[in-house]
Simulated scan of single mutants.
Amino acid sequence: MLFGSGTDPDPELTWARGVTLVADDGTYPELDHAGLVGVVGSSIAGLDALAFATRHPGLVDRVVLVATPIPEDEGGLGFELSEVTAKTLLLFGAKDPLTGSRHGTWWQKRLLNARLEMSPQGGHDLLLAVWKRVLSHLAPHCKR
């Protein structure tokens, strides 16, 4: 499930990886799905991805946050960050003036199972540039 983008960043790559992508508008639809799912949140929509993961801990096993800013009010999220149990990949751009390494490090310290990767030349609009890495995290052993 992709939060923060209405379209697939690279449909050919997504298909080749064996991933079925569902874009969400933040309404958290109930999924009719047999098996585990991964969620991706780009920019501020990363908070929506985390909220979805905490609402469905038995369903969501992997999360990717791409250039997600530190929340203004951690207590106002509606969930505790310690509730995020999914394996989480944090992707941030080193040249991002909005959410550079400081934001990535903040998330890494607060999410129990998180790995931070910095894109040396990446800015805030990072989703397309890191899409291959996103898919490899969401579906590590899947390919068509």
Rank of each mutant, 00 (worst) to 15 (best):
V64G: 06
R144W: 14
T27D: 14
V66T: 11
P11C: 05
R115G: 12
G76I: 07
V130Q: 07
W15S: 14
V19H: 03
L111R: 02
G100Q: 01
G78V: 00
V39C: 02
L138R: 06
S101Q: 14
K87I: 09
D96R: 07
L112C: 12
V60Y: 04
A16N: 14
V130G: 04
R17Y: 04
L138T: 05
A94V: 02
A49W: 00
A45M: 05
G41F: 04
G122R: 07
W131A: 01
T68Y: 01
T85A: 13
V37I: 12
F52K: 12
L128H: 11
D96C: 03
A53R: 00
L90H: 02
D61P: 08
K109N: 12
V134Y: 06
R115K: 15
K87V: 10
R133N: 13
A16Y: 11
L127E: 02
A23P: 09
D8Q: 07
Q121F: 13
E12C: 13
D25V: 11
K87C: 10
F92T: 05
R55S: 09
V19E: 08
G100Y: 00
L47E: 07
V63T: 05
H124W: 03
L135K: 05
H56E: 04
S43P: 06
P69E: 03
T27Q: 08
A67M: 03
N113I: 13
H56N: 08
V22T: 11
P120N: 08
R115I: 13
K143S: 15
A114I: 06
G93K: 14
I44Q: 09
D25F: 11
S42N: 13
G122Y: 00
F92E: 13
P140K: 01
Q121R: 11
W106E: 06
W106G: 10
P71L: 03
F92R: 08
L126K: 11
G123T: 05
T7S: 15
D48S: 09
D73I: 10
G78I: 00
R62H: 07
R144F: 14
H137G: 00
M118P: 05
V19S: 07
T99H: 01
W15I: 12
L112A: 15
E72W: 09
G26V: 00
L90A: 04
S101A: 14
T85V: 07
K95V: 12
S119V: 15
V60Q: 02
P97N: 02
D24I: 00
P57G: 03
V84F: 00
G104V: 04
P140E: 05
Q121D: 15
T20V: 15
L126M: 06
A34L: 14
G38R: 10
D48Y: 11
R115V: 15
L90Y: 04
R62K: 12
P140T: 10
A51M: 10
L13V: 05
T14M: 07
P11T: 02
V37S: 01
G76Y: 04
S101W: 10
S43V: 02
L47Q: 13
L111Y: 00
T68N: 00
Q108H: 09
F92N: 11
A67G: 02
D10E: 10
L77D: 08
G58R: 12
Q108I: 10
W131E: 04
L13D: 06
A23V: 12
T85W: 14
L47A: 09
Y28R: 12
